[in-house]
């Protein structure tokens, strides 16, 4: 039978990809799980060859027990939440603006998208040195111009500063997706609403926003995945100081600075759990837009 034949052929053809994907995901995952139950301090002479000591859940309890753990979860969620709110709200507004017919539309659109092409490390450095530097930064000049004391952004307002930098990077992505969604809105629907007596604010609220809900869902889900793991921006700006230590940064410190692979692996498992909790939570609130 043709269908059965083609099905087994399809399985055969897909097998390499599936095996590769499984290997790609499963091997690091199981290694992480494995190390998280071991005492593994390379600098103290622990190595795979000598055999690692099984320590049960000791690494897990120690990671949670450390004073840095809960603040790091909080910092992670604050950054993710803050960036999501800023990028979605501003993204919708920018998309509305860019959708208006105007002179030089093409150029403006490219300019808006530009930040997305700048590497995170570079953009964070640019922000740190050009804008937020308390003595030479542009913002410092602005503050001085208005006669107020410049703010030491990255130390006094570290989390908001980081949220600002990351939002600047991700705003183009949100804008782009929302703009394409707005462009797919049927103009006659807006005209119908106009004739039905809806002023522009209500047209936005009752017609445009529901139309965008699916695109907003996608923006939130994709951004969350990437934002949970931001690293370079923290590394080059505060280095994890001033309360900007996120979960992924904490894991980095545990593994590389204190050379504790077992503890870092346990942190990695926590990060997976956190990501899943956030994902399920988000799917619950926004996911119903996806199957509508």
């Amino acid at each position: 039978m043709a269908t059965q034949h083609s099905r087994s052929a399809a399985r055969l053809m897909m097998a390499p990809a599936v095996v590769l994907l499984l290997g790609w995901m499963l091997i690091p995952l199981s290694m992480t799980l494995f190390f998280s139950f071991k005492k593994y301090l390379p600098l103290r002479g622990d190595s795979m060859a000598n055999g690692l000591e099984w320590v049960g859940f000791a690494n897990y309890t120690r990671f949670v027990g450390s004073s840095a753990f809960w603040p790091s979860v909080q910092a992670t969620l604050t950054i993710v939440g803050g960036v999501l709110i800023i990028t979605v709200v501003l993204g919708v507004l920018l998309a509305l603006l860019l959708n208006q017919p105007m002179w030089g539309q093409g150029v403006v659109r490219i300019l808006v998208i530009a930040p997305f092409f700048v590497m995170p490390t570079v953009s964070a450095l640019v922000w740190k040195n050009m804008f937020m530097d308390p003595t030479n930064g542009l913002l410092a000049y602005l503050w001085k111009f208005f006669g107020t004391e410049p703010i030491a952004w990255l130390s006094q307002a570290s989390l908001p500063s980081l949220i600002m930098i990351v939002s600047w990077q991700w705003l183009p992505f949100a804008t782009l997706i929302l703009l394409t969604a707005i462009q797919s809105l049927d103009g006659e629907q807006l005209e119908a609403a106009e004739m039905d007596g809806a002023p522009s604010i209500k047209r936005f609220w009752f017609i445009v926003l529901p139309h965008l809900s699916r695109a907003i869902t996608i923006v939130i889900l994709i951004q969350t995945i990437f934002l949970l793991a931001i690293f370079a921006e923290i590394f080059v700006t505060t280095g994890g100081a001033f309360g900007t230590k996120t979960l992924s940064y904490l894991i980095f410190q545990r593994v590389l600075e204190s050379q504790n692979v077992g503890l870092g692996s346990a942190g990695g498992v926590y990060a997976i759990i956190l990501a899943n909790i956030v994902a399920i939570f988000l799917m619950r609130i926004v996911g119903k837009n996806l199957d509508a």
Binding site: Q189, A192, I207, H211, A292
Partner: peptide, 9 residues
């Protein structure tokens, strides 16, 4: 309208 222009949601 020709396309009906109903509000789909």
């Amino acid at each position: 309208f020709q396309s009906y222009a109903l509000y789909p949601h």
